[in-house]
Amino acid sequence: MSIGEPFVQLNKASVVYRTETGEGRPVWSDVSLAIHEKEWIAVVGPNGSGKSTLAGVLLGLSPISEGTVARYEGLDNGMKGVLQLPEAQFIGDTVEDELNWIPYAQTLPEEARAAWYREVLAAVGLEISPSRSLLTLSGGQKQLFNLAVALATKPKLLVCDEATAMLDPAARMDVLAAVREAYRQGTTIVWITHRLEEASEATRVIGFGEGRVTYDGDPHLFFYGEGEVSPCEALGFDLPFVVQTVRHLREQGVALTALPLSMDELAEAISCL
């Protein structure tokens, strides 16, 4: 999928939070980056590095202290977010209430709306009653439901901040499959995660360290690097299993023609030897 027009442009943006004593605590310093239509961007970094601040800035929840944030006309109001605290995003009391806030739902007759509810929930692997109270959902179900609501609006830009953090492996696969399909249909993805294996889906990686962008570029170069230490390792991370496997193969004299990031890519690269 080719890159399109810029959606959001940050230029020398800084964020300073005020403490109870009135002192400033810098969170971001001099962050410049652009998010373009049709990208899948994985945002990674240690805890407290500033990666979640990006979600707040993009969604207008965290004001910047210096610099500029430009949102381009082509984005309109088509930006949705899935944040770490799902309850903070609820508007209604029940599943049905929440889905009915979506404008498309309001155009559907009652019978068609019931079928649409099932379709929206099934997209993320949920099987729950539309009359169910949101407060009775588990933490993982709440996160899945927030993603279902966001995807149902068919956003132009979807910002996910640790969207799989509370999910078991099967649910994580459901989430990634749903987001992958949204990307295939043209949604731009900003995927903030501490699970490095999820970055294999991305077309671009942005690494944060101590409130600054330490890497912005190709995912393969982020993990494999060009020298002894890759940008991934420079951020203090252990390399994902797939990348470690390729390194061990190289040490044994087995040179792969590709640089795989996923298990499927690794299997294909080995089969071509």
Rank of each mutant, 00 (worst) to 15 (best):
P86M: 12
T136S: 15
V82P: 02
A122T: 10
E73K: 14
L135P: 07
V57D: 02
A88Y: 05
A123P: 08
G140E: 13
V82C: 04
E87C: 05
T68W: 12
G74N: 13
A112W: 13
A123Q: 13
C160V: 08
R71W: 06
A152Y: 00
G125P: 11
V69F: 10
E111V: 14
E73Q: 14
G139P: 02
T94Q: 04
G139D: 03
V57Y: 02
S131Y: 11
G92L: 01
L85H: 10
V159C: 06
T94Y: 08
A152F: 00
V57S: 03
R132S: 11
E119F: 12
M79T: 09
I91P: 01
D97F: 02
T68K: 13
S131I: 11
N100I: 07
V95K: 05
L83S: 08
L137C: 11
A148P: 05
L121T: 15
E96N: 02
L99V: 02
I128Y: 03
G60R: 00
E162S: 08
L59Y: 11
V57E: 02
G92V: 01
A122S: 15
S129N: 14
T107W: 00
L147S: 04
I128L: 11
K156T: 10
L85Y: 08
L126Q: 10
L134N: 09
Q89R: 05
C160W: 06
A148D: 03
L151R: 04
P130F: 06
I91R: 01
D97C: 03
L134E: 04
G125W: 11
S138G: 15
Y117W: 09
N100A: 07
A122I: 06
Y117V: 10
